[in-house]
Amino acid sequence: MASVVFMGFVAYVLSVASVSYQEDGTKRESLQVYAFNMFRNIVSQGNMMIVSKWSQRFLFYSWYLFCLVVSALYSGMLTAVLAIPAYETPINFLEDLPRAVKDGYTLSVMADSTNEYLFKEATEGIYKQIWPLFNHKDRPESFVSSPVIGMKRILERKYVYMGPYLVSRVIAMQMGDRKFYFGRQKFFPQDVGIAVPQGAPYKKIFDQKLLSMVEGGLIAKWQEDEVRKIPQTTSGQDESGSKISALTLTHLQAAMYTAAIGYVVAGVSLIIEKTVHFSFEIKDA
Protein backbone atom coordinates (compact mmCIF):
# COMPACT_ATOMS: atom_id res chain seq x y z
CA MET A 1 0.00 0.00 0.00
CA ALA A 2 2.88 2.37 0.73
CA SER A 3 4.29 1.71 -2.75
CA VAL A 4 0.89 2.55 -4.31
CA VAL A 5 0.69 5.89 -2.49
CA PHE A 6 4.32 6.71 -3.27
CA MET A 7 3.93 5.83 -6.95
CA GLY A 8 0.78 7.90 -7.22
CA PHE A 9 2.63 10.84 -5.69
CA VAL A 10 5.58 10.44 -8.09
CA ALA A 11 3.25 10.24 -11.10
CA TYR A 12 1.42 13.35 -9.92
CA VAL A 13 4.71 15.26 -9.46
CA LEU A 14 5.75 14.30 -13.00
CA SER A 15 2.45 15.54 -14.37
CA VAL A 16 2.88 18.86 -12.52
CA ALA A 17 6.46 19.20 -13.78
CA SER A 18 5.44 18.56 -17.38
CA VAL A 19 2.38 20.82 -17.40
CA SER A 20 4.53 23.82 -18.28
CA TYR A 21 5.30 22.44 -21.73
CA GLN A 22 2.20 20.34 -22.49
CA GLU A 23 0.65 21.68 -25.67
CA ASP A 24 -1.80 18.90 -26.52
CA GLY A 25 -4.44 20.05 -24.06
CA THR A 26 -4.15 16.88 -21.93
CA LYS A 27 -5.97 17.31 -18.65
CA ARG A 28 -3.81 17.00 -15.54
CA GLU A 29 -5.46 14.65 -13.09
CA SER A 30 -5.51 14.99 -9.30
CA LEU A 31 -3.30 13.10 -6.85
CA GLN A 32 -6.23 10.89 -5.82
CA VAL A 33 -6.80 9.81 -9.43
CA TYR A 34 -3.16 8.86 -9.90
CA ALA A 35 -3.06 6.92 -6.63
CA PHE A 36 -6.32 5.10 -7.49
CA ASN A 37 -5.00 4.05 -10.90
CA MET A 38 -1.76 2.81 -9.33
CA PHE A 39 -3.91 0.68 -7.04
CA ARG A 40 -5.89 -0.64 -10.02
CA ASN A 41 -2.63 -1.76 -11.63
CA ILE A 42 -1.36 -3.71 -8.63
CA VAL A 43 -4.65 -5.62 -8.31
CA SER A 44 -4.63 -6.39 -12.06
CA GLN A 45 -7.58 -4.15 -12.92
CA GLY A 46 -5.86 -2.20 -15.69
CA ASN A 47 -5.09 1.48 -16.09
CA MET A 48 -7.71 4.04 -17.13
CA MET A 49 -5.24 6.90 -17.63
CA ILE A 50 -3.73 8.01 -20.96
CA VAL A 51 -0.40 9.83 -20.83
CA SER A 52 1.37 11.51 -23.75
CA LYS A 53 4.81 12.33 -22.34
CA TRP A 54 7.63 9.80 -22.46
CA SER A 55 8.67 10.55 -18.90
CA GLN A 56 5.25 9.46 -17.67
CA ARG A 57 5.23 6.47 -20.00
CA PHE A 58 8.55 5.19 -18.68
CA LEU A 59 7.25 5.63 -15.15
CA PHE A 60 4.13 3.63 -15.95
CA TYR A 61 6.15 0.93 -17.75
CA SER A 62 8.32 0.41 -14.68
CA TRP A 63 5.23 0.34 -12.48
CA TYR A 64 3.63 -2.30 -14.70
CA LEU A 65 6.77 -4.46 -14.37
CA PHE A 66 6.77 -3.88 -10.62
CA CYS A 67 3.14 -5.03 -10.37
CA LEU A 68 3.89 -8.04 -12.57
CA VAL A 69 6.77 -9.20 -10.36
CA VAL A 70 4.84 -8.65 -7.13
CA SER A 71 1.78 -10.45 -8.51
CA ALA A 72 3.89 -13.40 -9.67
CA LEU A 73 5.64 -13.65 -6.29
CA TYR A 74 2.38 -13.46 -4.37
CA SER A 75 0.67 -16.02 -6.61
CA GLY A 76 3.63 -18.40 -6.36
CA MET A 77 3.81 -18.05 -2.58
CA LEU A 78 0.06 -18.59 -2.24
CA THR A 79 0.20 -21.67 -4.46
CA ALA A 80 3.11 -23.10 -2.45
CA VAL A 81 1.29 -22.56 0.85
CA LEU A 82 -1.95 -24.11 -0.40
CA ALA A 83 -0.11 -27.09 -1.87
CA ILE A 84 1.42 -28.03 1.49
CA PRO A 85 -0.97 -29.89 3.82
CA ALA A 86 -1.61 -28.13 7.11
CA TYR A 87 -0.58 -31.27 8.98
CA GLU A 88 1.36 -34.36 8.05
CA THR A 89 -0.57 -37.62 8.05
CA PRO A 90 -0.53 -38.62 11.73
CA ILE A 91 0.95 -41.86 13.00
CA ASN A 92 -1.76 -43.21 15.27
CA PHE A 93 -1.47 -46.99 15.07
CA LEU A 94 1.20 -49.65 14.73
CA GLU A 95 -0.14 -50.34 11.22
CA ASP A 96 0.94 -46.78 10.24
CA LEU A 97 4.62 -47.44 10.99
CA PRO A 98 5.54 -49.17 7.68
CA ARG A 99 4.16 -46.18 5.79
CA ALA A 100 6.05 -43.83 8.08
CA VAL A 101 9.34 -45.65 7.37
CA LYS A 102 8.71 -45.27 3.63
CA ASP A 103 8.23 -41.53 4.24
CA GLY A 104 11.69 -41.33 5.81
CA TYR A 105 10.92 -41.78 9.51
CA THR A 106 13.21 -43.72 11.86
CA LEU A 107 11.63 -46.01 14.45
CA SER A 108 13.08 -46.22 17.93
CA VAL A 109 12.58 -47.76 21.38
CA MET A 110 14.61 -47.96 24.55
CA ALA A 111 17.58 -50.29 24.17
CA ASP A 112 17.30 -53.62 26.00
CA SER A 113 13.79 -52.76 27.20
CA THR A 114 10.58 -54.74 27.25
CA ASN A 115 9.47 -52.82 24.16
CA GLU A 116 12.51 -54.02 22.22
CA TYR A 117 11.89 -57.55 23.47
CA LEU A 118 8.25 -57.33 22.37
CA PHE A 119 9.18 -56.60 18.74
CA LYS A 120 12.28 -58.79 18.67
CA GLU A 121 10.66 -61.98 19.98
CA ALA A 122 7.37 -61.67 18.10
CA THR A 123 6.64 -64.66 15.89
CA GLU A 124 3.70 -63.25 13.96
CA GLY A 125 1.47 -60.24 13.49
CA ILE A 126 2.25 -56.56 13.35
CA TYR A 127 5.07 -56.77 15.90
CA LYS A 128 7.00 -59.20 13.71
CA GLN A 129 6.40 -56.95 10.66
CA ILE A 130 7.76 -53.90 12.46
CA TRP A 131 10.95 -55.46 13.84
CA PRO A 132 12.87 -55.42 10.48
CA LEU A 133 11.95 -51.73 10.06
CA PHE A 134 14.28 -50.65 12.85
CA ASN A 135 17.77 -49.47 11.93
CA HIS A 136 19.79 -52.56 12.84
CA LYS A 137 22.91 -51.39 10.95
CA ASP A 138 23.27 -48.33 13.17
CA ARG A 139 21.81 -49.68 16.40
CA PRO A 140 22.11 -46.47 18.53
CA GLU A 141 19.94 -44.71 15.94
CA SER A 142 16.92 -46.91 16.67
CA PHE A 143 17.70 -48.18 20.16
CA VAL A 144 18.28 -45.18 22.43
CA SER A 145 19.80 -45.27 25.88
CA SER A 146 17.21 -42.95 27.47
CA PRO A 147 13.74 -41.58 26.67
CA VAL A 148 15.08 -38.01 26.64
CA ILE A 149 17.32 -38.82 23.66
CA GLY A 150 14.40 -40.30 21.76
CA MET A 151 12.15 -37.30 22.44
CA LYS A 152 14.87 -34.82 21.46
CA ARG A 153 15.41 -36.58 18.14
CA ILE A 154 11.72 -36.11 17.33
CA LEU A 155 12.34 -32.36 17.27
CA GLU A 156 15.44 -32.69 15.09
CA ARG A 157 14.28 -34.96 12.25
CA LYS A 158 11.65 -37.47 11.15
CA TYR A 159 11.67 -39.74 14.13
CA VAL A 160 9.22 -42.00 15.98
CA TYR A 161 9.91 -42.92 19.58
CA MET A 162 7.86 -45.63 21.31
CA GLY A 163 8.18 -45.66 25.07
CA PRO A 164 6.25 -45.46 28.35
CA TYR A 165 3.37 -43.03 27.92
CA LEU A 166 3.68 -41.22 31.25
CA VAL A 167 7.44 -40.76 30.93
CA SER A 168 7.03 -39.44 27.39
CA ARG A 169 4.30 -37.05 28.50
CA VAL A 170 6.48 -35.67 31.29
CA ILE A 171 9.40 -35.08 28.90
CA ALA A 172 7.07 -33.52 26.33
CA MET A 173 5.68 -31.11 28.91
CA GLN A 174 9.20 -30.01 29.75
CA MET A 175 10.23 -29.54 26.11
CA GLY A 176 6.96 -28.04 24.90
CA ASP A 177 3.86 -30.19 24.72
CA ARG A 178 2.60 -28.67 21.46
CA LYS A 179 5.76 -29.75 19.64
CA PHE A 180 4.83 -33.43 19.97
CA TYR A 181 2.04 -35.61 18.66
CA PHE A 182 1.05 -38.73 20.59
CA GLY A 183 -0.53 -41.58 18.66
CA ARG A 184 -4.02 -42.64 19.64
CA GLN A 185 -3.12 -46.29 20.10
CA LYS A 186 -1.51 -47.47 23.34
CA PHE A 187 -0.01 -50.93 22.95
CA PHE A 188 1.63 -53.37 25.34
CA PRO A 189 0.07 -51.99 28.56
CA GLN A 190 2.03 -52.75 31.69
CA ASP A 191 0.62 -53.07 35.20
CA VAL A 192 2.49 -52.30 38.39
CA GLY A 193 1.93 -54.82 41.18
CA ILE A 194 2.45 -54.78 44.92
CA ALA A 195 4.25 -57.84 46.29
CA VAL A 196 3.09 -59.24 49.66
CA PRO A 197 4.09 -62.39 51.59
CA GLN A 198 2.42 -65.59 50.45
CA GLY A 199 -0.78 -66.25 52.34
CA ALA A 200 -1.00 -62.67 53.67
CA PRO A 201 -4.54 -62.12 55.04
CA TYR A 202 -4.69 -58.53 53.75
CA LYS A 203 -4.01 -59.45 50.09
CA LYS A 204 -7.72 -59.67 49.30
CA ILE A 205 -8.30 -56.22 50.82
CA PHE A 206 -5.40 -54.77 48.80
CA ASP A 207 -6.85 -56.27 45.62
CA GLN A 208 -10.29 -54.80 46.27
CA LYS A 209 -9.04 -51.33 47.14
CA LEU A 210 -6.59 -51.12 44.25
CA LEU A 211 -9.21 -52.36 41.80
CA SER A 212 -11.67 -49.75 43.07
CA MET A 213 -9.07 -47.00 42.65
CA VAL A 214 -8.32 -48.04 39.07
CA GLU A 215 -11.97 -48.45 38.05
CA GLY A 216 -12.89 -45.16 39.71
CA GLY A 217 -10.31 -43.30 37.61
CA LEU A 218 -8.24 -42.16 40.57
CA ILE A 219 -4.98 -43.46 39.10
CA ALA A 220 -5.57 -41.61 35.83
CA LYS A 221 -6.52 -38.44 37.74
CA TRP A 222 -3.42 -38.57 39.91
CA GLN A 223 -1.32 -39.12 36.82
CA GLU A 224 -2.77 -36.02 35.10
CA ASP A 225 -2.38 -33.98 38.29
CA GLU A 226 1.31 -34.85 38.46
CA VAL A 227 1.78 -33.99 34.79
CA ARG A 228 0.19 -30.56 35.32
CA LYS A 229 2.64 -29.80 38.11
CA ILE A 230 5.55 -30.01 35.68
CA PRO A 231 6.81 -26.60 34.43
CA GLN A 232 5.67 -26.35 30.83
CA THR A 233 7.49 -24.84 27.89
CA THR A 234 5.00 -22.61 26.07
CA SER A 235 6.76 -22.60 22.73
CA GLY A 236 4.68 -24.29 20.03
CA GLN A 237 5.16 -25.85 16.65
CA ASP A 238 5.44 -22.49 14.93
CA GLU A 239 9.00 -22.23 16.35
CA SER A 240 10.12 -25.46 14.76
CA GLY A 241 11.30 -23.80 11.58
CA SER A 242 8.58 -23.45 9.00
CA LYS A 243 9.95 -23.07 5.50
CA ILE A 244 7.01 -20.98 4.31
CA SER A 245 7.24 -17.34 5.35
CA ALA A 246 5.68 -14.05 4.41
CA LEU A 247 7.03 -11.98 1.53
CA THR A 248 9.72 -9.55 2.68
CA LEU A 249 11.78 -6.82 1.05
CA THR A 250 14.40 -9.45 0.27
CA HIS A 251 11.91 -11.27 -1.97
CA LEU A 252 10.85 -7.98 -3.58
CA GLN A 253 14.33 -6.80 -4.51
CA ALA A 254 13.76 -7.37 -8.23
CA ALA A 255 10.51 -5.41 -8.15
CA MET A 256 12.14 -2.59 -6.18
CA TYR A 257 15.07 -2.40 -8.59
CA THR A 258 12.64 -2.29 -11.52
CA ALA A 259 10.70 0.56 -9.93
CA ALA A 260 13.92 2.44 -9.08
CA ILE A 261 15.18 2.11 -12.65
CA GLY A 262 11.82 3.38 -13.86
CA TYR A 263 12.10 6.43 -11.61
CA VAL A 264 15.56 7.20 -12.95
CA VAL A 265 14.57 6.74 -16.59
CA ALA A 266 11.42 8.81 -16.11
CA GLY A 267 13.42 11.59 -14.45
CA VAL A 268 16.01 11.60 -17.22
CA SER A 269 13.24 11.63 -19.83
CA LEU A 270 11.59 14.56 -18.08
CA ILE A 271 14.84 16.53 -18.11
CA ILE A 272 15.40 15.74 -21.81
CA GLU A 273 11.83 16.70 -22.72
CA LYS A 274 12.05 20.00 -20.86
CA THR A 275 15.47 20.74 -22.37
CA VAL A 276 14.27 20.02 -25.92
CA HIS A 277 11.09 22.04 -25.37
CA PHE A 278 12.95 25.11 -24.07
CA SER A 279 15.56 24.88 -26.84
CA PHE A 280 12.76 25.06 -29.46
CA GLU A 281 11.22 28.01 -27.59
CA ILE A 282 14.56 29.86 -27.70
CA LYS A 283 14.90 29.21 -31.42
CA ASP A 284 11.36 30.42 -32.06
CA ALA A 285 12.02 33.55 -30.05
Rank of each mutant, 00 (worst) to 15 (best):
S62D: 02
W63R: 13
W63C: 07
W63A: 09
W63G: 07
Y64H: 10
L65I: 10
L65V: 07
F66T: 07
F66I: 03
F66L: 08
C67V: 01
C67A: 09
V69Q: 13
V69S: 10
V70E: 14
V70H: 12
S71M: 06
A72H: 11
L73T: 02
L73G: 04
L73A: 05
Y74V: 09
Y74I: 07
Y74C: 09
Y74H: 13
Y74M: 11
S75H: 11
S75D: 12
M77R: 15
M77Y: 15
L78A: 15
L78T: 14
L78V: 13
L78G: 15
T79D: 15
V81P: 09
V81Q: 14
V81R: 13
L82V: 03
L82S: 10
L82C: 05
A83T: 05
I84Y: 13
I84P: 13
I84M: 14
P85A: 01
A86L: 09
Y87N: 10
Y87E: 12
Y87D: 09
Y87V: 04
E88F: 09
T89H: 10
T89P: 06
T89Q: 12
T89M: 08
T89C: 08
P90A: 01
P90R: 02
I91K: 05
N92F: 07
F93S: 08
F93L: 06
E95L: 03
E95Q: 12
D96G: 00
L97P: 04
L97R: 00
L97T: 01
L97A: 03
L97F: 04
P98I: 01
P98D: 04
R99N: 15
V101E: 05
V101N: 04
V101S: 04
V101P: 05
K102H: 04
K102E: 07
D103G: 08
D103E: 14
Y105W: 04
Y105V: 00
T106K: 06
T106Q: 06
L107M: 01
L107G: 02
S108M: 01
S108C: 00
S108G: 03
S108H: 02
S108R: 00
S108F: 01
V109Y: 05
V109N: 06
V109D: 08
V109F: 04
